[in-house]
Structures are given as structure tokens and as C-alpha cells.
Design a protein around this nucleic acid. Sequence first.
DNA 1: CTGAAAGCGCTTACAG
DNA 2: CTGAAAGCGCTTACAG
Lengths: 381, 381
Amino acid sequence: MRTRSCKLLSFASHPPREKTFSRLTSAMVKAFLMSGATEEQLILTGKKTGRTTIHEVARAAGISISTASKALNDTGRMTDDTRERVKRIAAEIGYRPNALARGLLSKRSFTIGLLTNDTYGRFTLPVMAGISEALVDHGVSVFLCAIEDDPALGQIHVEAMLDKQVDGIIATGKRLDRRLPVDLSNLHVPVVYAFTEGAPNSVTFRSDDEQGARLAVEWLRKLGRRRIVHITGPEDFFSVRERAASYRAIVGRDAEVMSGVWSESWGHDAIAAIWSRVAEKPDGIFCGNDQIARGVIDALRERGLKVPQDVSVVGFDNWEIVAAQTRPPLTTVDMELKELGRQAGLTVLALAEGRTVEPGIRKLPCRLIVRQSCGGDTLGI
Amino acid sequence: MRTRSCKLLSFASHPPREKTFSRLTSAMVKAFLMSGATEEQLILTGKKTGRTTIHEVARAAGISISTASKALNDTGRMTDDTRERVKRIAAEIGYRPNALARGLLSKRSFTIGLLTNDTYGRFTLPVMAGISEALVDHGVSVFLCAIEDDPALGQIHVEAMLDKQVDGIIATGKRLDRRLPVDLSNLHVPVVYAFTEGAPNSVTFRSDDEQGARLAVEWLRKLGRRRIVHITGPEDFFSVRERAASYRAIVGRDAEVMSGVWSESWGHDAIAAIWSRVAEKPDGIFCGNDQIARGVIDALRERGLKVPQDVSVVGFDNWEIVAAQTRPPLTTVDMELKELGRQAGLTVLALAEGRTVEPGIRKLPCRLIVRQSCGGDTLGI
DNA sequence: CTGAAAGCGCTTACAG
DNA sequence: CTGAAAGCGCTTACAG
């Protein structure tokens, strides 16, 4: 604990003498002021400088701190004149209420914790932005806790957040069919899950991958593509199975699904495999993510095939850095993660304020971003 | 302000009757306990459930709260036995100190603010991870404030942070030669800049681009490349000029620098331009970032040139998602942004604790990540 | 209409 | 060795 010793110029003696105190009480300050010192002459060493308190406001306005408090918070009753004057003075001397003190009383810290295991991730970044954006309007600040996949680190962060009296916690991750390595049930603050698997009976936000896949495949169909294949990621991903099911629901029970990994090179390999076969070639390819789509497009070009004239390609994720750099730019599905974050933020807030929220999984619709890899354009939808 | 009304079972009457109070004082609780209620029988509606306070610890241990506090903080004097017993009891009943209350006294919130204008960004993400990692060990949590390039939003976030009594602020951005759109000088908390331009006389951390560029070019030279060109981003970037200067210092005053934009397609275009000329072709290409390098490698391959046999290519950034997916994988310069974040974190912490830190710009060394686009290997360095 | 007092959950100087 | 008291910066029920 830091020393809190203070120095004051004592005007009790002449000339004024500096005295050191182990602790400075307001009574002592008063005594010194009575003895002739102006406030500017007080030298406070241990006390952090800067922040003015409600005491200063009250003193400057010549009223009690209770009245100052009520004036500033638009509570209590007093003449409009008094209220305005207090507010004006507070603004003049740069008064800002101490949120710690407020929080101690109100049991609300206007703070929430955001837990993620996706440090470098593509997915949590927009989610975070959405949360932050939604909550800043309500005066709520967000603690960022990057816990990797380390349960011990997760525990440490959760405890630090609870100690700081967060009003709620949002858990987010890189995969919506995996849990964070930390147990968030039975906390005494509300928890909301976003793009990660939630505890039973919790509120969970996720993208509607089934609908997203449908958008992509229907777009291919609408453009006249009839021989469509699906090149996607590992089957143990829930979203892979869901997107594939949606694709098959449209294209047909036995429509081809090629599962691999989430990489460009898998896109290449898949095209090599398809084009080495004698069977009829596809005229439309629905890719499980944008990286695969990138590999697919490159591989098609290397084979002398034109995208979208010969083959239409659609991706998933709308990862700008990939989607905008393919040749041609990629038509793809956007999971609207920022909106997902916004809703998650507003929901913890609601819970923190005691409003009730139905538990369950909320699927948020995806949006098709039309660029040039399929042909067609937005007007064609 | 939420209602804080409470209900208690009154044992003064028989049978016990529920009474509602607008406010529950500890004296009232005591009175009810005296009247025969056990604690479990108290029904507290308005009071948030859950958190046990130091009062509970003291009561459970049969000591005063002062002694409990001292026992838990390893201050004051008492028998080891008492201290251990208090700690054990505190652990048993799950006591955790309220950081808001502590902060009110100690003037330390164990909280810092991280300001960034790079929401989706590649650069601030590792910086953030480094900060968080360094500070979690010291019990410090990080407020994430994404301010885009909006001065008003920046102001709001800064005020929210100050209201919450952050111990310091770290400013970070997507470009080290641009300021955040918010003035952080003259705050009464310490500010550290990381990967963004700092105020005069501040502490600023940045990567040593000159040294990074030197690593890249010297690597090409060491591998026997003698006709080296530099394909890079827009000249108004300070880092572009710095890397170019470093490259010229090694390769020669008049060595060719091609400035364009930070994209794959510029890499393509630059190669097309070079190969359309009659002059001798380069055998080594130093690219200003990994995306340009990706375009360069693709363009070379499309021309039937082999990387690295015919031409060595080196990038800058070590952006995994790009560098690991080029064919062949890209040798590139890593700016060690996570380490940069760690140091920035430890530095605000030092300042917050009142230790003095020399102001100035600290350049942190980059590291060459050897993959296969240049030939050679780590042993060859 | 306004202020004194109690209290949020802690810590610490001081007095026993 | 231990506890009562004051206080951090606020808010609010209550009494004038």
C-alpha cells in the first residue's frame, strides 16, 4: 500500500512552514484554510492530484454535498436555478463523478467482461466491436480478457472480473460448437454467450448457418447453375454439417460434399481431384469458407477456366482481406458478427438491469455479399 | 437508482411475519438476529445476493473487521495462528475483496484503458494480447476502447475510462505515423503509446523497421542475391520510407524502389512492369508487406518462374494467414508486436506505480521468420 | 427547498 | 496482539 503522507503549508506560524502528516483529514484541511492558506497553497504529496470531488463542487456552490449530488443527478427537489447553477459550476471546475464510489453504492459498476479464447481471431474481432459499440452508449466499459485455451488463465480472468464487480460477462470464441475452458454457470452475474457454445439454459447468440448456406446455394441456382458441389472444412465442425445439410436440402440428398481443412491448399486439392475425374464438371461451387474459395478460384484459373463464366464460386465468412483480393472478388456470406455482438451486449445489459430475457439459442440471419465470382449482381436478387 | 427495499422475517411476533423496509441497516439486521432469526431466515430482496464481505469473514472468525483485513493482507501484527485461521475461513466462505472499495481507498483501480482505432486490425490484435498477458499477472484488467477514427467517440471513451479511475492508458493504432483522433496529453494518468504516434515527450513503443528491413535485405544478400528490388506501399507511410532507406543503405543509393499500395494486386502489377522491361531481371525481391509478397509470388509463378530457385522473395509483417499460405511459404519479417504490447503494458504499470520512466521512442527489434520463399534455412544465418 | 447522517466495503493510523 | 474509529467519494432516506 502506497504511503499517503501529505505536506501542508502551515500558516499558524510565520513565515508559513511546511509540515508533513501521515494522513490528511478534511478537518485538517479546514483548519489550515482557516489559518489563512488559500487552497492553491496546499501542497498535497500523497494525494493524487487532479480529480475534483463533489466536495469541491459543493464548496464552490456554497451548498451541501447532498444537494450537490441531487442537483447533478436530477433527483431530489430544489429550484431549477440552484440545479442549473450547480451543474454549471461542476462543469466549470471539471467535476466528474468517481465511478468507483458510485459503484460501491449502486452495486452497478457499468462494466462488463468479455472473455475470448480467440486472440488473433477473425471472428471475435467484429463481435467485440459490436459489443463495445452497443454498450458505450450506455456508459458501460468492456474488460477484454484473452484466455487462450488455458483453464487456469480463464479462472484468473473471471475472478479478476468478479472482483471488479462486473455487471455481466459475455463469452465469445472462435468456434460456436466449442465451450470456453472455464465454467461460467452459477456465477452471481449474468452471462451471455456469443459465437461460442453456451451452458444449458443460457442465452446464446449465433449465426444462422443454415440460412446463410441457403442464401449462397440459392444464389447459384438463381444464376442457372445446376451442377453444384460443396467444398468445405472438417466434418467435426457443427457449422460444416449444418451448412452441408442446408446445401443438400436444396441441391439434393446425394449432392457432393467434399470435407477437408479450412485452407487455400485444400481448395486447390479439391479442384484437382474433381478435374481428374471423368465425370461431368461442376458449374457452381459453394465453398465452406473464403480461404477455400480463394484456393478454388486460383486452381480454376490455373486450369484455364473462367470465373464466373465457366464456374461460379461462392464463399462463406466475408473475410474482407481474402474476399476482396481474389480474382475476381468473391461473392460470399457475411455472418453479421458485429450485429451479433451488439445484440449480445444489449442482452447482458438487460440482464444486468434485472430485465428478464428468455434463455435459448438465437440464430441471427446471414447476408449475401455479392461481388463478381458468381456473376449476377445485387439487382438480380 | 434501483430500489433497495428489503424484506425481513420479524420474529418479534408469532408466527414470524414478513416486514418490508426501504433500507436495511446493519443495526436492523442485528436486531432481527437477536429476536431469534437465523441468518438463513433473512430474506433480502433488494440487496444483491452472492458476494460475501469482510464483515462475514470477521463474524465467522469471531474477530473485528480490522483484524480480518490485516490478516488477509499480511499487514499488522497477530499470531500466525490467527492469520492462518482467518485466511482459511475466508477461503471457505468464498470471500473475495471488492476491488471497487479497495480502489476507492488506494486510488488504484488495477485497471488500465486500451484505446485503438484499429477495430478489425491485424496490428493491434497481437499488441493487445501482449498487454493483457503482461498485466494479468499484476492483477490489472484492461478496458478495450475501439474508437475508430471518430474524435467524439474517442472523447467519450477517454472520459468513461477516467471516470472509472483507470491507472493509466495505452494508445495503439494501425499506423505508427498517425495520431489517434484524441488528445491524451495533460491527463492526470500516465499514457503510453504503442504502434501509434505519441505526443511529444511521451513514452512510445514501435518496431525498428530499419533493422527489420536490414534483416530482410541482408538475408537476400547472404543467399547470393545481387539484383534486388524493393516493391512496397505508399510513400506517405513513414515505415515505407524507413524500410526503403534501410534497403538502399545496403543495396546502393540508387537501388530501385517501387511504391504502390498495400495489396496483392500491386504485387502483380509491379512484377508485370518489371518483366515488361528489357533490363536485367531481379533475382531477389524485398516486399513492403506480406500481401504484396503474395501477389509477387503468384505473378512470378504465372510467368513460369520458380520461387526461390529463380527469384527469392521476402515479405514484411509475418501475417500468418498470408505468409503461411503462399506457395512456397513466405520468409518474412516479424515486428514482434506481442512483445511490444508486453513492454507497453509493463511501462504503464511502472508509471502508475510512480516509478519514473524516461520519455522517448523505443524501437523494438524485428525478427526474420525463415520459411521457403528465399531458399536457405535458419542454420544458414 | 436543503442539509446532517448513515452507509456501500474496504484500509489504516491510533489507542488500548 | 486486537479493535474502534475515521475515511475513500459518493447516494439517499429522513428530518427539518
